[in-house]
């Protein structure tokens, strides 16, 4: 299975060589949006790796090689952390070198949490349908979001900002443990669901 993760990193070599310097430039230009840039770059890189393997022929290849379907899915779930790690490392180093200060560990942790949450939903969705439909799903979610902020909760943005600021300001270890555990459970459930979906696929 490690071979599968290594394969993803190898195939994403060129993407990483373009995206990570781009992230550095972004950090140099705009230091304030660490969380947003971290999440977006992680999603872009990881989804690129996922989409490359989405072709029917590539599924046939890996299912014909001595890998189980469980391993193929699991490698993607672990791969998410590899790509997130690379992005976090880039953010950390770029901030230290360019701005002379590192982002807070809470910010980095927040990026990790958000990407984990994103992939918990998007991976099973992509295995069931196709990642290209994620765009439609996102547009749908965005439309729902617009309706919510316009009709139901006009100050949703402020609320989110407050919640984020509140979470980042929290010192209570217990809360972190709670959020962390919840995310781990969601991620594991998502992983099990993806395995179930993938094992039923026909190529």
């Amino acid at each position: 299975m490690l071979q599968l993760i290594r394969k993803d990193l190898m195939l994403q070599k060129n993407t990483l060589l373009i995206m990570l310097p781009l992230l550095v430039v972004y950090i140099a230009l705009n230091a304030s949006a660490t969380i947003l840039s971290g999440v977006l770059f992680t999603i872009a890189i990881t989804m690129q790796a996922f989409m490359l393997d989405e072709k029917r022929q590539i599924h046939i290849l890996f299912n014909s090689l001595p890998y189980t379907r469980k391993e193929i899915v699991t490698s993607k779930y672990i791969g998410v952390f590899c790509f997130t790690g690379l992005v976090l490392l880039t953010i950390l180093i770029a901030n230290l070198v360019i701005h002379g200060e590192s982002p807070t560990w809470k910010e980095l942790l927040f990026i990790l949490c958000l990407t984990t949450l994103f992939f918990s939903f998007s991976l099973p969705f992509s295995y069931r349908f196709k990642s290209q439909y994620l765009l439609f799903a996102s547009i749908g979610t965005f439309a729902a979001y617009l309706v919510v902020i316009n009709v139901f909760i006009p100050n949703l943005h402020d609320l989110i900002r407050e919640v984020v600021a509140f979470l980042l300001a929290m010192e209570q270890v217990q809360l972190y443990v709670l959020v962390g555990c919840a995310l781990v459970i969601v991620y594991i459930l998502s992983w099990l669901l993806s395995i179930r979906i993938y094992e039923k696929k026909m190529f």
């Binding site: 190898m10 195939l11 022929q57 090689l65």
Partner: peptide, 21 residues
Amino acid sequence: ENVFYEQSTMLDMRSIMKSAY
């Protein structure tokens, strides 16, 4: 049909297959 990555070379495919077998 071609089941290999179209953008890859035989060398790339070799390393993928090599690590599998």
